[in-house]
């Protein structure tokens, strides 16, 4: 098992390096970064100074080496417009994104697991069909659209909750629902199908034959066994929520990482964009690694297969 985990760790490191290479190349494909930063009316001295500071006069492999060195020292560049380190800009916004993603995840779990379990137990009933509609809507409607609907009807028409901005807990509800509906739909569908598989298995039939109470059959035996694929998906959804908050943050004026990334793209503040891509990619890779590790502990078959 240790060999398996070590292998996954090495894979993750290579993935990170590949992401850094892609970021490095893309920034340079855009053209001369110094020229892009300074615009058309640049003066030659400033231009030369910026080129030197970015190592742009060095050979490309030296530039990449310098870039890697800086990244591993936590230096992701300097925000051209905010006049401070790009990592600082990102980290300042990260708590807001984490809060939103966390609330969305909580909302999706709160809704998806019970819905999926009930739909599986009450297969082909109105509950099951209700879940299908919920899942279809959640996966078919874009997040920004759900967000706008919530803003117009819940905030604007009913006046129940704030329409946007970051403030108290009430500010969190609408963006969390908008962001969490999509993963909730996916988790609910997977929970339902995993439950159906488990409910059809011999050990569940045996438990029922032995007279184990139905509640115990469902919640102790069936849900526990159906949870393995669901937990995997949930782990991946956390990373997806963190990076997927870009649109939701924009619609709800939520001052997180996604919003500053969009603004930096429009403002051509490439160091901040670069920092955002690296940060979000690192989160994705770390989440995948954690899921793989958890999966080994949850499912003994993985341990045996890897031996």
């Amino acid at each position: 098992m240790q060999r398996y985990l070590l292998g996954r760790l090495v894979q993750s490191i290579f993935t990170i390096l590949f992401v850094l290479l892609v970021v490095f190349v893309i920034v340079r494909l855009k053209g001369d970064p110094a020229a892009v930063m300074l615009g058309e009316n640049r003066d030659p001295e400033t231009y030369a100074a910026v080129r030197r500071s970015l190592h742009l006069d060095d050979p490309i492999h030296v530039q990449f080496g310098a870039f890697l060195g800086k990244v591993f020292r936590g230096d992701l560049g300097y925000s051209w417009y905010q006049r401070r380190p790009a990592l600082e800009v990102m980290l300042e916004r990260f708590p807001a994104t984490l809060q939103l993603a966390g609330a969305a995840f909580f909302f999706s779990l709160l809704l998806a697991i019970p819905l999926g379990v009930v739909a599986a137990i009450k297969r082909d009933t109105i509950y099951d069909r209700g879940l299908k509609i919920f899942a279809l809507l959640g996966q078919a409607m874009p997040t920004f659209w759900v967000g706008l609907l919530l803003i117009v009807f819940v905030a604007g028409y009913l006046g129940l909750l704030p329409a946007g901005g970051r403030g108290g807990p009430s500010h969190l509800i609408l963006p969390a629902i908008a962001l969490g509906w999509f993963p909730a739909a996916a988790i609910a569908r997977l929970t339902r199908s995993a439950m159906l598989d488990v409910l059809d298995s011999d050990f569940i039939k045996m438990a029922r034959v032995k007279g184990v109470p139905e509640q115990m059959v469902i919640w102790k035996h069936a849900v526990k066994n159906a949870a393995i694929p669901v937990v995997t998906l949930m782990g991946l959804q956390i990373a997806g929520l963190l990076s997927g908050a870009v649109v939701t943050e924009q619609v709800f004026a939520w001052p997180g990482v996604g919003w500053i990334t969009i603004q930096s793209i429009f403002g051509r503040d490439f160091p901040v964009v670069q920092a955002a891509v690296i940060l979000l990619a690192a989160i994705h890779i770390a989440a995948n690694l954690v899921v793989d590790i958890v999966y080994v502990y949850l499912d003994p078959r993985v341990r045996y297969l890897r031996r």
Binding site: I151, G159, P162, A163, G164, Q250, F252, A253
Partner: peptide, 18 residues
């Protein structure tokens, strides 16, 4: 001065008094 890029959100915030 609060940055609210989406016009629908901005107008709704005016309506609700935010």
């Amino acid at each position: 001065t609060v940055s609210v890029p989406d016009a629908t959100t901005r107008v709704t915030m005016l309506k609700t008094g935010q």
